[in-house]
């Protein structure tokens, strides 16, 4: 598990709108990569291109290459469904399936893909995924209760369990803590640290302390003006970005001198 992603000259469009221009970066396996930047600069859009979820939005398309261990995700014979099975995603707001129990939610990725699962294997997988998401001890007695009955932080960890239950190579997180209180945020950050042992984690965050705490490498996205495409200003180790950024814009943003 966990693969390396190389992005080469990627331009992202929604219809005629040029959303993000000319991104080139390498995302290392078994590490946490964070994207920071102001709202609307295209970091979430860019994250979604890593598992082709931006295509769900009408008019979404890209120019350029995203290589996962050398294989182009946008190659002619690549099915976006296969890409998404390898690159899992956790969203900003926790979104467990309301019709399913906690256990069914965890197994949803496997079950909905119509893979057959014996009940013993299902139990084992559910426990493994929930343990992986640090949620097992809190929910082990109520696996058959609805997922929507959990607290926001627990729901978000349930969504992470659901994403890692299909054993992806890469895990994308789009502001996973922005709807959570500080304690739940801490739980998720601890979890991200654990996940890095097995997965390539990419996280978008508005919280710069969070980026500094959890990530190994950080990318700063910015846009020159509204209506212009967003771009990757600087991409370096988190240490360098926060202590010694090479770009003026990065330094201004991190130190709060913007606008």
């Amino acid at each position: 598990m966990s693969k390396r992603i190389d992005v080469k000259d990627l331009d992202i469009y929604y219809g005629d709108f040029h959303a993000v221009k000319d991104v080139t970066m390498t995302i290392e396996p078994r590490s946490v990569t964070a994207f920071i930047g102001p709202s609307g600069c295209g970091k979430s859009t860019f994250l979604r291109t890593l598992n082709r979820m931006h295509e769900v939005i009408p008019g979404g398309r890209v120019d350029g290459e995203v290589l996962m261990d050398g294989e182009n995700l946008y190659g002619r014979n690549v099915d976006p469904v296969d890409v998404r099975r390898q690159v899992g995603m956790v969203f900003q707001r926790p979104n467990p399936f309301p019709t399913m129990s906690i256990k069914e939610n965890v197994l949803a990725g496997v079950r909905l893909n119509s893979r057959r699962l014996s009940s013993a294997a299902a139990d084992e997988l559910a426990e493994k995924a929930l343990r992986g998401a640090n949620l097992w001890n809190e929910v082990k007695d109520r696996l058959d209760k609805p997922g929507s009955g959990l607290s926001g932080g627990q729901q978000q960890r349930l969504c992470i369990a659901r994403a890692i239950a299909i054993q992806p190579e890469v895990l994308l997180m789009d502001e996973p803590c922005s709807a959570l209180d500080p304690i739940s945020t801490l739980a998720i950050e601890d979890l991200i640290n654990d996940l890095k042992a097995d997965y390539t984690v990419v996280i978008v965050t508005h919280n710069m302390q969070q980026a500094a705490r959890v990530s190994d490498r950080t990318g700063f996205f910015n846009l020159e003006a509204t209506g212009r495409p967003g771009e990757l200003v600087e991409f370096d180790t988190t240490q360098a970005i926060f202590n010694n950024p090479s770009q003026r814009a990065t330094e201004d943003y991190i130190s709060g001198r913007f606008g």
């Binding site: 769900v56 469904v81 998404r84 099975r85 979104n95 467990p96 949803a108 909905l112 893909n113 659901r162």
Partner: peptide, 12 residues
Amino acid sequence: ELREASLALGVP
């Protein structure tokens, strides 16, 4: 969000 959650799990 539910559609996106499902699609992101690699469900057709």
